[in-house]
Nucleic acid binder design. Structure first.
Length: 376
RNA sequence: GGGGAGAUUCCAGAGUGGCUAAAUGGGGCAGACUGUAAAUCUGUUGGUAACACCUUCGGAGGUUCGAAUCCUCCUCUCCCCA
């Protein structure tokens, strides 16, 4: 993997860059649609490339390991062959499931014992095992195995957890460096900064992660329910420590406004379930604001879903029709909501990139931020 | 023609003397969703000058301190047998 910075914003820490992988290039800042079980819910691979213009998507180690299982993915020839997405992929390590499935796991110094949410079976995830699984899945970017701490979280616990994550990181790196990719293309490993909402821990963790000298770095343990101001404060501190010449990935963030704010702090990569989950549930993000398509007010609004968008769905369907689909619980409603939101998210980061390269990012942001944040 | 069952708030459907403006679903309305156990979850859903009052359980009367619940008549619906 290679990363080159194309442009630095003169008025902020925002930057535009290019990541090169064996599955193609990624222009940053970028938003990565989440495809947990090998599928961006409700979206064809072809729509991801042709309409949404996604450049990289996520998969999840824990979920893919449980189903279909790494043997099936290996037989398929890796995740990109299996799900027909032959562009870059990033797999999360299962660290988020340590948080989200906290009631179904036990943390030990060696790793995490998971009780499958599907059939209750026991599975031990050690840093080494997680590296092996991600080798089998075959994503271009693999994530270190970490503990994503909850919010709120006591300083004492956050510190111990961070130290455990750091120990696991050393093991991840060692094992990663001692193993080979399985499918003939390169994989890289991103370590993850933890430290909850504590400045001292975040600084310590960011220094540790920077010292590992990997090809890219991630900021985790955010967007778990903490106030947005705290998330921003932590992100800003960490971005100041992580090396400038490597991509910074802010995990699980966020709203369109969060993404612009964090691009300004120097974040290059984002992922979030929000565009797909909210889209599936009736919330639509547009450059003029956020709409709840289930609301009665759209009942007889026969204007296009988004007249400023060039997405086919936004130009084909009306708000009244989309509301009808949601109220009738038609699958097409969730599909249109998802494709629309992903298209918007990708438009947003690509536009941000243009503005950075044009030297107009901050002024553009100050105009668009209030518009995209309002509810209409 | 004979026999039987039933009519409850937008719908379906509980309730069979006071704890009932009335369970539970659905529908309606609104909200939530941030490295996806989520095409999910939550709230709300008679009216009003609203911690109270008014109207409501097919219609009209009646019994009772008190009725959706008991009695009488009426109207309508459904099922079975001829």
């Amino acid at each position: 993997m290679k990363f080159n910075i194309t442009a630095n914003d003169s008025k902020s820490n925002a930057r535009a860059g290019i990541i090169q992988t064996d599955h193609g290039t990624i222009e940053t800042p970028i938003f990565m649609p989440v495809g947990t079980v090998g599928s961006v819910k409700g979206i064809h691979a072809q729509d991801l490339t042709d309409h949404i213009k996604a450049e990289i998507i996520l998969g999840n180690t824990y979920h893919l390991y449980l189903r279909p299982g790494i043997d099936i993915i290996e037989q398929a020839g890796g995740i990109q062959k299996f799900n027909a997405w032959n562009k870059p992929t990033l797999t999360d390590s299962g660290g988020f499931q340590v948080f989200s499935l906290a009631h179904r796991r036990k943390i030990t110094p060696d790793g995490v014992l998971f009780y499958s949410h599907i059939d209750g079976s026991k599975h031990l995830f050690t840093p080494e095992r997680v590296m092996d699984i991600q080798r089998f899945i075959g994503a271009d970017i693999m994530m270190a195995f970490d503990e994503c701490t909850p919010y709120p979280c006591e300083h004492d616990y956050a510190e111990k957890s961070m130290e455990l994550t750091h120990k696991w990181l050393d093991r991840c790196c060692t094992h990663f460096d001692n193993t080979e990719p399985k499918y003939g293309y390169n994989q890289t490993l991103f370590p993850i900064v933890q430290g909850s909402v504590y400045k001292d821990l975040r600084i310590k963790s960011a220094e540790k992660i920077a010292s590992m000298n990997r090809e890219g770095n991630a900021i985790g343990g955010v967007s778990v329910g903490e106030p947005i101001d705290l998330m921003y404060e932590m992100t800003e501190i960490v971005c100041g420590i992580l090396p400038k010449d490597k991509p910074r990935y802010l995990m699980g963030v966020g709203t369109p406004a969060n993404i612009l704010d964090c691009i300004e702090m120097g974040v290059d990569m984002f992922d979030c379930v929000m565009p797909t989950r909210n889209g599936r549930n009736g919330t639509i993000f547009t450059r003029n604001g956020i709409m709840n398509m289930k609301n009665e007010k759209w009942k007889n609004d026969f204007s296009l879903i988004d007249k400023e968008s060039d997405l086919f769905a936004d130009q084909q369907y009306t708000k009244a029709y989309l509301r009808h689909l949601f109220t009738a619980h038609e699958q097409l409603g969730g599909m249109i909501g998802s494709i629309h939101n992903l298209h918007f998210y990708l438009w947003l980061v690509k536009e941000a990139r243009k503005q950075i390269m044009n030297g107009t990012f901050t002024s553009w942001k100050s105009v668009i931020l209030p518009k995209i944040s309002q509810r209409i």
